[in-house]
Amino acid sequence: MPTLTRSFVKASLIALILGLVAGIWPQIPGAAITGLFPIYLHLLTFGWLTQLIFGIAIWMFPVYSKEHPRGPEWLGWSIFACLNLGLLLRVIFEPLQGISPSTFGGWMLVLAAVLQWLAGVGFIANVWTRVRGK
């Protein structure tokens, strides 16, 4: 399994654990935080499921070329960085905006949105030409 895929899979497992913790939190009496439910959902669907799919697809889909079987290395790592940095910003600033809204926090959410979108576009660019016959 290539290093990039191992990073995706391990990060997805961390997101799974964090997502489950975010699910436990509101069950504690008096500990509910506004903005935590979207975090719970996105840690599980984006951080866990989508990230796991990205990692495995980059590894297992038909090769890109002989020289770069899994596509350009820089693109793979950029997808990984954008996905996890975007998710981290969201995990930090979405609940913070619920507790104490600020312009800075608002812009951090915009940045999180852009980074996550770039991760998706990067993944599509990586695998689109690899979806082919023999």
């Binding site: 812009w107 959410l109 915009v110 998706g120």
Partner: peptide, 21 residues
């Protein structure tokens, strides 16, 4: 599925950015 991924991510990014600003 990749086309839907693009559309879904774009809609999601717009919603999240709109939450921020």
């Amino acid at each position: 599925s990749l086309v839907y991924l693009f559309l879904g991510f774009t809609f999601g990014a717009l919603i999240l950015a709109n939450k921020g600003i």
